[in-house]
Design a protein around this nucleic acid. Sequence first.
DNA 1: TAAATAGTGTCTCTAAGACAATATCTC
DNA 2: GAGATATTGTCTTAGAGACACTATTTA
Lengths: 286, 286
Amino acid sequence: MSTEQVKKKDHNGLTEEEFLAAYEPGDYERPSVATDMVIFTVTDAEEENYRKLARKELRILLIKRGAHPYLDSWALPGGFVRPTETTEEAAARELREETGVDKVYLEQLYTFSEPGRDPRTWVMSCSYMALIDGSRVHIEAGDDAAWAAWFQASFCMVEQAEQKEVWELTLSHEETVLRAVLEKEKGRFFTESKILDSGGLAFDHARILACGYERLRGKLSYTDLALHLMPEYFTLTQLQQVYEVVLDREFPAAAFRRKAAPMVKETESYTENEGHRPSRLYRKNL
Amino acid sequence: MSTEQVKKKDHNGLTEEEFLAAYEPGDYERPSVATDMVIFTVTDAEEENYRKLARKELRILLIKRGAHPYLDSWALPGGFVRPTETTEEAAARELREETGVDKVYLEQLYTFSEPGRDPRTWVMSCSYMALIDGSRVHIEAGDDAAWAAWFQASFCMVEQAEQKEVWELTLSHEETVLRAVLEKEKGRFFTESKILDSGGLAFDHARILACGYERLRGKLSYTDLALHLMPEYFTLTQLQQVYEVVLDREFPAAAFRRKAAPMVKETESYTENEGHRPSRLYRKNL
DNA sequence: TAAATAGTGTCTCTAAGACAATATCTC
DNA sequence: GAGATATTGTCTTAGAGACACTATTTA
């Protein structure tokens, strides 16, 4: 505000300075605001069939709740936002606390505000998507997280009618399999989806997950986003595998390489001892 | 939550039901949450040069503030969210109050949460973009809006360095011209931009406007979004003009028609008395 | 008939997908 | 050499832009 503004007087004859000095927050209700995070990473599947390439798996971090509500359910990592930080800073802080990693790609997804989405009280969730490269994945025990685990994720349409689609989100970790089902109006987004079956996920986290998945898939095709899932050095085939596991479809190698060329920098290093022809290593060209 | 969940006891020996019955909202601070809206419409420029086609103008609704802070500055329409509604419902309600229109395209943009963005107290803004077709534009006097006006908008890059861009947002209505300047890191989004000059806009509304403009432009090319700016019946040239005024560039008519074909339905009506060959009217094919 | 826009046909160019051919490592 | 992946070249096809040509109305 300019100094000229500060001198102006309102209908009570107050300048802006006077108004602010006298300002009392009203007694209308305020929501709690939390951040919830969909943290994606891509890891190699175990499989060690001498000479075959490792398959890739898309994984999402979930936390087993140690308190009511949704005691013992799996939930997205998150926490409440403090008055001295932005929602993004809160997300970065939680991410650091929960995974120990820092300086990762973080993008705001959507703010969920359905009254009643938290049975305790009025809580909005400003959700974020984080992308971590598999080599940095180390879980640290969080404060109110009894357990944390990287669930392998898949997300696909299982039914398609005239004006609606039904999607299934499957998350699995060892013996645990969570299967959520969402209904989405045709042409709209998962931000407006309806949870048909939460699959055991806490709160409306199935929607948030779907929203993150949709954003990641949507942006992968026309941005550099996939690079944030890659380690420092990687082969073009590995990059292609990341695209394939996220988008759940295959790409012709020749065309993929042409498209990927501008987003990477060639190095003079090659993979070694792979049981087949070595592959050139590339770096991100961000 | 399943019945099985409800029976589980936490470390205090409480079931979920007991926990919720005893729940007391903590005394940590909560933010106020407002919605602010970037309402776009496209109108004809006055100009009545017998037989020439009307130029199109992109317009955004601004409200002149009648109270501190930012008394007499122009601001986006908006208001506080109530505990019984979603942020989207709040936006729809404000939109109805401010413009009298209902059932318009509404899309959440971004939640701005910079501490200090509102000098009064801790206020987050969950921003929305609304698209209204020009034929529905009628302004009703809002409650705390001294004035409301549709400002003609333009938004363009004025400087481009290695890692940053400077953009200028110009809003004009009759004698009033607001010129905001924003700095954007290369490859990032206007959600993270820095306001170099607010141009007289209240709060961080220049950022919100930039964010809305960016979203509209981004989505226009690969979605049906433009249709929400069109009246019931329109010509393909009018649709093309909407694309051109939003994206600030021209399209070759032949290619545009090929691309637009799948999103419209042909009718048997034509324009009349235009001083040149009549044009077929189309309807939205949503 | 002049002014102006409406609408279409076609050529070129680019980028994506298909597909085949060749290269190069380890066991 | 067999098995496996790496990498490139080229053909085809779809879509965007360029551009020219025709159509149709009103003052």
